[in-house]
């Protein structure tokens, strides 16, 4: 592989690094807020992947100025523009869930929540615990 080839793939590689960082945060960290931040990083990396694919060398922003010009691909822009706002709406939903979990369990650490859940299950399962 030539150097120029690797140069042309640099964007995608960084996108993959970001994607994997996001995934790693989601998988390895127990804190729910941090998980949501990790998901946001993952999400942004997907946005960058799309927009990088839409870029044309020497192109400009897809706004017609009357002169003949080369434009970058407007289609990824449209998809990602809406995805960002949908992303914040779903992030807000996730954060609302975190707030409710905090109210219910008094913790936002996944491990502690699982422990509490397990304890509650054992209580119910114990024979004769309840009539």
């Amino acid at each position: 592989m030539e150097f120029k080839d690797a140069f042309g793939l640099f964007n995608y590689w960084i996108v993959i690094v970001l994607m994997m960082t996001g995934l790693y945060i989601v998988v390895s960290r127990g804190n729910l807020v941090k998980k949501i931040v990790g998901l946001n990083i993952f999400q942004t990396s997907v946005f960058l992947l799309y927009i990088s694919m839409g870029k044309v060398t020497g192109g400009t922003a897809p706004i017609l100025t009357g002169k003949p010009e080369v434009f970058s691909n407007p289609l990824p822009h449209v998809l990602i523009l809406t995805a960002i706002v949908v992303g914040i709406a779903t992030t807000a939903l996730g954060l609302a869930l975190v707030v409710r979990i905090k109210n219910a369990y008094n913790s936002i650490e996944e491990d502690e929540i699982q422990k509490l859940d397990l304890a509650a299950e054992n209580e119910v399962d114990e024979p004769g615990a309840r009539p």
Binding site: F47, S52, G54, K55, V56, F71, H77, I80, I84, V85
Partner: peptide, 14 residues
């Protein structure tokens, strides 16, 4: 990357 509309949204939202 020429995605001015997207950048605008990302800056305001993110």
């Amino acid at each position: 990357l020429d995605a001015v509309d997207v950048a605008f949204t990302e800056a305001a939202v993110g």
